[in-house]
């Protein structure tokens, strides 16, 4: 399908009292799943006035979830290292399996292979692990990163997996042998700020032809606060060389925390800042975005519905700016936290 980024419309917003970090739309478009800081699995039934239900799922933060290619299962993972598999659909979801300690530290990303037979995870322990999607059994451990591994993407060839770490090292793994075939350079996304390691490959995705790997994060920073320029590095898959450095046309300070590739030929990135969230639409090969869409709160995870007509964006923030800032800030005498939302956009 073709889309016109300027025609992107905010279709609806579902809200929750806690921050939302990731989201997925069911293939039939009936359900919107979300998760975040409360560790619960949230489900909104979109054709029933956005009826909200939530289910006990995890103990740590849930920053990552992915749908099986057939749409029947959802995989969620948390910052305490747990991965769970859930059925998609109505009723109370009963987890099909759980791996308690897929990683012993903060698990950053879970992704699923194009055929759906395997899932991969990565974490602060410098490891990438591959499990069977059916039973959650460990198939392979990929070692070689020397820093926290923040992002993952399967290649359509079924043999390759890519991973990106804090220092901007991208590794291309052979899944049949577990060997690292090559390293690609996205180190522009890392900065040593005084005594702190900043940035990293926060997100990655391939284009639909699997000719280009897009790595997102931020470049440069003037504080220990991820205050750099949102940046996507497009790596040519064949040569491994940098093809394009993609940044926003308009000034923005903050990281890109997720990217998706639209088959109509747009890379869509989600930005997070103090001033709110932004969706950027880039054409491949172009350094500056063609269009941007602003939102009241900072964005986190994205999901492009498989029909290409809807985009979900998890966000969190502070409506009205009354909850943030230094010192004691009470709302009606209560100490309340920030809230979450998922914005649903129609792409036309």
């Amino acid at each position: 399908m073709k889309i016109e980024p300027k025609a992107t419309k905010l279709e609806r917003v579902v809200r929750y009292e806690r921050q939302m970090h990731c989201c997925r739309l069911s293939p039939d478009g009936a359900y919107l799943y979300g998760a975040g800081f409360d560790g619960r699995l949230h489900r909104w039934t979109l054709n029933q006035k956005d009826r909200h239900e939530s289910f006990a799922a995890h103990q740590g933060w849930v920053e990552t979830m992915v749908l099986h290619p057939d749409g029947s299962q959802l995989f969620t993972a948390d910052s305490w290292g747990q991965v769970s598999c859930w059925p998609v659909g109505p009723g109370i979801p009963k987890r099909r399996w759980t791996i308690q300690d897929a990683h012993l530290t903060w698990l950053r990303r879970v992704t699923v292979s194009p055929r759906g037979d395997r899932i991969a995870t990565c974490g602060n322990d410098h490891k990438v692990r591959v499990f069977s999607s059916g039973e959650g059994k460990l198939i392979r451990e990929l070692t070689g990163h020397e820093h926290a591994v923040l992002s993952l993407a399967f290649h359509a060839d079924g043999k390759s997996l890519t991973s990106g770490d804090l220092f901007g090292n991208v590794r291309h793994w052979d899944l049949s042998t577990g060997k690292c075939l090559r390293s690609l350079d996205a180190s522009r996304l890392y900065k040593k700020f005084h005594q702190y390691d900043q940035g990293g490959v926060r997100c990655m995705t391939f284009d639909t032809a699997f000719r280009c790997l897009y790595c997102g994060g931020f470049e440069g920073t003037n504080a220990n606060q991820a205050q750099g320029t949102p940046t996507v590095i497009a790596l040519d898959w064949a040569s491994g060389k940098i093809q394009t450095i993609m940044t926003p046309r308009n000034a923005f300070t903050g990281p890109i925390l997720d990217v998706v590739y639209h088959p109509a030929g747009y890379l869509i990135g989600a930005g997070s800042s103090e001033a709110g969230g932004v969706l950027w639409f880039w054409k491949p090969g172009q350094a500056k975005n063609q269009h941007e869409v602003r939102y009241e709160n900072s964005f986190r995870g994205l999901d492009l519905h498989r029909n290409g007509a809807r985009l979900a964006a998890a966000a969190f923030g502070d409506r009205g700016g009354q909850r943030g800032g230094n010192g004691r800030r009470l709302t009606n005498g209560e100490y309340v936290g920030f809230e979450g939302s998922i914005a649903l956009y129609t792409l036309a």
């Binding site: 926290a148 005594q195 504080a223 220990n224």
Partner: peptide, 18 residues
């Protein structure tokens, strides 16, 4: 003295480093 603990953004990655 160790500086730059003022983590108004990305607090958790910054503390993971510091």
């Amino acid at each position: 003295t160790m500086y730059h603990w003022d983590t108004h953004g990305d607090n958790f990655n910054c503390h993971l480093s510091g």
